[in-house]
Simulated scan of single mutants.
Amino acid sequence: MSQVKSVVPLNSRSSATTNDSGAFVSSGLRVGGPYRITITSDQGTKVFDNVFLWSSRNLG
């Protein structure tokens, strides 16, 4: 399993742990960004910068 940390706008933080297949859920994140996603596992650390979230929900 891996630890997943998200640094969200306004320096808030969110953490999650992956399941056996590597999937994770991080709820409560706002649409927009940029986010920095850091994944840490036995294999090392991987960072994804400038990640943006959007909603596919029709608000109309």
Rank of each mutant, 00 (worst) to 15 (best):
residue 38 T to E: 12
residue 26 S to Q: 15
residue 48 F to H: 11
residue 9 P to K: 06
residue 58 N to G: 03
residue 37 I to T: 05
residue 25 V to K: 11
residue 53 L to M: 06
residue 13 R to Y: 10
residue 21 S to V: 15
residue 51 V to N: 09
residue 57 R to W: 08
residue 12 S to C: 05
residue 32 G to P: 02
residue 57 R to I: 14
residue 42 D to Y: 03
residue 11 N to G: 08
residue 30 R to K: 13
residue 30 R to F: 08
residue 6 S to P: 00
residue 21 S to W: 06
residue 54 W to Y: 11
residue 23 A to Q: 12
residue 59 L to Q: 12
residue 23 A to E: 12
residue 51 V to R: 10
residue 52 F to N: 09
residue 39 I to W: 00
residue 58 N to T: 14
residue 57 R to A: 11
residue 59 L to S: 07
residue 55 S to H: 07
residue 19 N to L: 08
residue 39 I to A: 08
residue 30 R to L: 13
residue 9 P to E: 11
residue 11 N to W: 09
residue 44 G to Q: 04
residue 4 V to Y: 07
residue 35 Y to L: 09
residue 10 L to M: 09
residue 35 Y to H: 02
residue 55 S to R: 08
residue 46 K to C: 00
residue 8 V to K: 15
residue 50 N to Q: 13
residue 47 V to E: 12
residue 25 V to E: 11
residue 48 F to Q: 03
residue 8 V to E: 14
residue 48 F to L: 11
residue 14 S to I: 10
residue 33 G to L: 08
residue 18 T to E: 01
residue 6 S to W: 15
residue 53 L to F: 11
residue 31 V to L: 09
residue 5 K to Y: 01
residue 39 I to N: 00
residue 60 G to Y: 15
residue 11 N to T: 05
residue 31 V to Y: 01
residue 30 R to Q: 15
residue 51 V to C: 06
residue 43 Q to C: 03
residue 51 V to T: 04
residue 34 P to I: 05
residue 11 N to Y: 01
residue 28 G to C: 01
residue 41 S to T: 07
residue 60 G to W: 10
residue 44 G to F: 02
residue 26 S to V: 09
residue 54 W to C: 00
residue 53 L to K: 04
residue 6 S to M: 13
residue 21 S to Y: 12
residue 18 T to F: 05
residue 22 G to V: 06
residue 52 F to E: 04
residue 58 N to R: 12
residue 12 S to R: 13
residue 58 N to Q: 13
residue 37 I to R: 06
residue 22 G to K: 04
residue 10 L to C: 06
residue 13 R to Q: 14
residue 1 M to P: 11
residue 54 W to M: 05
residue 5 K to P: 03
residue 25 V to R: 10
residue 6 S to I: 14
residue 36 R to M: 14
residue 31 V to I: 15
residue 35 Y to P: 05
residue 39 I to K: 02
residue 55 S to F: 00
residue 17 T to G: 06
residue 58 N to K: 12
residue 23 A to D: 09
residue 26 S to L: 08
residue 13 R to W: 01
residue 2 S to N: 07
residue 15 S to K: 10
residue 37 I to P: 04
residue 47 V to H: 00
residue 34 P to K: 08
residue 30 R to N: 09
residue 29 L to M: 15
residue 54 W to H: 03
residue 22 G to A: 02
residue 58 N to W: 10
residue 29 L to V: 07
residue 20 D to T: 09
residue 43 Q to N: 09
residue 8 V to L: 13
residue 48 F to V: 03
residue 23 A to I: 03
residue 57 R to L: 15
residue 36 R to W: 02
residue 2 S to C: 15
residue 27 S to P: 10
residue 16 A to E: 10
residue 29 L to C: 02
residue 42 D to A: 14
residue 16 A to Y: 01
residue 33 G to Q: 06
residue 17 T to C: 00
residue 14 S to T: 08
residue 11 N to H: 10
residue 9 P to C: 09
residue 28 G to R: 04
residue 26 S to F: 00
residue 58 N to A: 11
residue 40 T to S: 10
residue 9 P to T: 10
residue 12 S to N: 14
residue 3 Q to F: 05
residue 17 T to D: 08
residue 39 I to E: 06
residue 41 S to P: 06
residue 53 L to W: 10
residue 54 W to V: 02
residue 50 N to D: 14
residue 16 A to V: 02
residue 25 V to C: 06
residue 22 G to C: 04
residue 9 P to M: 07
residue 41 S to Q: 06
residue 41 S to R: 04
residue 33 G to I: 02
